[in-house]
Every structure is written in structure tokens, then in C-alpha cells.
């Protein structure tokens, strides 16, 4: 799943169109759009709004822990050309001076830069940094929802010393984001793939739910059952979890014992030989 957080409707519109998102009918504090894989919220300007919108979207998507979280939007920079796309390799809260370093391991398609989150529009661009108003709030909140490698800020340069904020128009903002939608979608797909690759190892045989439905397992036993099923899948990936012995087990304890016995019959190190 991908969760987009954007400040303005003008920034969000190209993504809403690209992914054919529909408006969520549930009452929410911030407008939420979605399709099967993608969620988007429009948080308004400022880091407090961004943090609140992340929190709300996290609840809307039912606390999904392995989502990709992206803050996409426009930003100022002293001299980068208008329309340049950058991911943030550091996010500085200009007010508190707290700094985060989003890992860039999966961000191979786009160059990165420093990003400073300010409380009022920055028109002097004092450092070699992008300037926005949401990233600090977004990042600090989204980092609680997923692993840092898939929590990223993608910024498109909208103003610089040559081309000030006074020349920004709503239509111009939409066009800047629209020009980068394809690459943004590709980056997101790669991030999502990375989370899938992690999840593939966690997948458990469907027979597990059958066992859980058939017998009463304590919480500790459920944990034991999960790990035994995982160990079986690791050492004998072709073997289905459910066999005759497990099907005829009469209690949770018998299920666990049968699984342990089955593991004992497998080669210790299946790579050998």
C-alpha cells in the first residue's frame, strides 16, 4: 500500500487523476482519496497539519504497518531549476533544529538533497537546501507507521532566486507535479516492491487458519504455531503444512507436537549435499 500526503489540492490533482483515486466517503478531518493500493490525503499547509493528516490516514487504513509513506509537493531552492525533482536525504525542522536522515537505499531513480521544513515561506534560501513547510511534521509522524526506508519526501522545485513565489499560480503548481507523476509512480512502485519482498518471507501456509479455527490455541501457543509453520516453510518449502497427522490431531498441544516431530525428520541444513 502507498500513502501519499500532500499539502494542497493543486499538488494532489495530478496524482488523483493518474491513479484514478476516488474520494473516501467516510467522514475525515482531511480529504482522503483512494483506490485498491493507493491512499492520498490533502493535509493543508504546515507541519502540524501534515503530522495530523498522517495520523488520521494511518487510522483510516487500519494501522497498516508496512505501507510506503510519501510526502510529495513543491519546494523552494536557491538555484535549482524550476521543475527539478529531489528526494530528501535529510529533513531539518527549521524551528526545533531536529534533523532526520531518510535512508536513500531504495531511491535510486532520483537525486537527493537536503530539505528544511520552515514555519513561514522562505524566500531568501540561505542554505543549499530545499525549503517546504510540511516535511518535518510528515516525517516525524510517518516514521512511526513504517520502516524508514519507505518513508520519503519527494519535492519539486517551484521557486528559486530567479523565479520567486510571487510567480507561482495554482495552475503552475499542478503542471509542475503533473510533469513528474510518472517518475513518482515508478519510485513508489519500487518502494512497494521492497515491502512485498519483506512480506513474502512472512507469508504463512493457508492451512494455518484452518488449524487455528479447529483448535483452541492460547496466545503463547499461537506464537509457537506461527514459528513452527514458518520453520517448516523455511526448511521444506514444498511441503504443505496440513498433512494427515495434523488433520487428525485432537488438540492444540497435539498439533504443536506433531509439527515439532515433523521438523525433526527434516534435513538440518537443506542446502548441503
Amino acid at each position: 500500500m502507498i500513502a501519499y500526503v500532500l499539502a494542497m489540492r493543486e499538488e494532489a490533482q495530478p496524482l488523483i487523476s493518474h491513479f484514478a483515486l476516488q474520494r473516501c466517503k467516510t467522514t475525515t478531518l482531511f480529504p482522503v482519496f483512494y483506490n485498491a493500493q493507493t491512499w492520498l490525503t490533502i493535509c493543508g499547509v504546515g507541519k502540524a497539519n501534515a503530522a495530523a493528516a498522517v495520523t488520521e490516514l494511518f487510522h483510516v487504513v487500519r494501522h497498516k504497518r508496512d505501507a510506503v509513506w510519501l510526502n510529495v509537493g513543491i519546494a523552494g531552492h536557491a538555484d535549482l531549476p524550476i521543475g527539478t525533482l529531489r528526494s530528501a536525504h535529510s529533513v531539518l525542522d527549521g524551528a526545533s533544529r531536529q534533523r532526520w536522515y531518510p535512508p536513500q537505499v531504495l531511491m535510486r531513480r532520483v537525486a537527493s538533497g537536503a530539505l528544511t521544513s520552515v514555519d513561514a515561506p522562505e524566500t531568501a534560501y540561505p542554505d543549499d537546501s530545499l525549503y517546504d513547510m510540511e516535511s518535518a511534521g510528515f516525517y516525524s509522524a510517518a516514521l512511526r507507521c513504517s520502516t524508514a526506508e519507505v518513508v520519503q519526501c519527494l519535492k519539486i522545485v517551484s521557486d528559486n532566486r530567479e523565479h520567486g513565489t510571487d510567480r507561482l499560480s495554482p495552475q503552475g503548481i499542478t503542471e509542475l507535479v503533473a510533469a513528474q507523476v510518472k517518475i513518482i509512480a515508478e519510485i513508489c512502485a519500487e518502494l512497494r516492491e521492497a515491502t512485498y519482498s519483506l512480506r513474502a518471507d512472512q507469508e504463512i501456509d493457508p492451512g494455518l487458519s484452518e488449524l487455528l479455527g479447529k483448535h483452541r490455541f492460547s496466545v503463547t501457543q499461537q506464537r509457537q504455531l506461527m514459528r513452527l509453520a514458518q520453520r517448516l516453510a523455511a526448511r521444506a518449502p514444498q511441503q504443505p503444512l496440513l498433512d494427515d497427522e495434523l488433520a487428525s490431531a485432537r488438540s492444540s498441544r497435539e498439533v504443536l507436537r506433531a509439527l515439532e516431530q515433523r521438523l525433526d525428520t527434516l534435513p538440518v541444513f537443506p542446502h548441503a549435499g
Binding site: 535512508p103 537505499v105 516514521l143
Partner: peptide, 28 residues
């Protein structure tokens, strides 16, 4: 390579919510 300055390496290295396996694919 892109150069990123920091005060202490621990600001980058130690935070929670990092995934060692994902990072191992392309460590900085």
C-alpha cells in the same frame, strides 16, 4: 557520491525503524 553532513554518525546509524535487510541491498 552525494555527500551529506551530519553532527554525529549515530543520528543516521542508530534511529529505530530502520530495516537492516533493506539497507543491506545498497548501504551508504
Amino acid at each position: 557520491a552525494t555527500r551529506v553532513h551530519c553532527s554525529r554518525y549515530s543520528e543516521v546509524f542508530n534511529p529505530r525503524a530502520q530495516n537492516f535487510r533493506l539497507q543491506k541491498s545498497d548501504p551508504a
